[in-house]
């Protein structure tokens, strides 16, 4: 074999505590999904960091391009009425 590819790249997501989001923890190399899960377990949960692991082939992840950031995210800047602090609440009103 001319090149030693060291297997495929997978991204690892760990749920830190029950009910929480799965967060990106890092990557592992593996040739198939079972191996990816095992390697992720060995590499990222040696100290009870989580109770659930997702592994995803890195090639399956679509990400937004840095150049598109303005187009995608700037429109949210002038819609401050989406935040609760935008509204004027009469003095004395409670629990709102």
């Amino acid at each position: 074999m001319a090149t030693d590819t060291q297997l495929d790249l997978w991204e690892v997501f760990i749920q830190g505590k029950s009910g929480g989001h799965h967060m990106h923890a890092g990557s592992v190399h593996a040739s198939d999904k079972e191996m990816a899960l095992k390697n992720a377990r060995d590499l990222y949960t040696r100290r009870s960091e989580g109770g659930s692991i997702w592994v995803v082939p890195s090639s399956a992840i679509i990400s937004s391009a840095p150049d598109d950031a303005a187009m995608l995210f700037d429109p949210a800047n002038d819609k401050i009425y989406r935040h609760p602090t935008f509204y004027v609440i009469p003095e004395g009103a409670k629990q709102i």
Partner: peptide
């Protein structure tokens, strides 16, 4: 020692994001 191996892997992954292969 297992931790050290793990640290190596975290760092290889970080380097790979810059376009160099593990190989």
């Amino acid at each position: 020692i297992q931790d050290e191996g793990g640290h190596g892997l975290y760092l290889y992954s970080a380097a790979e994001t810059l376009g160099i292969s593990r190989d």
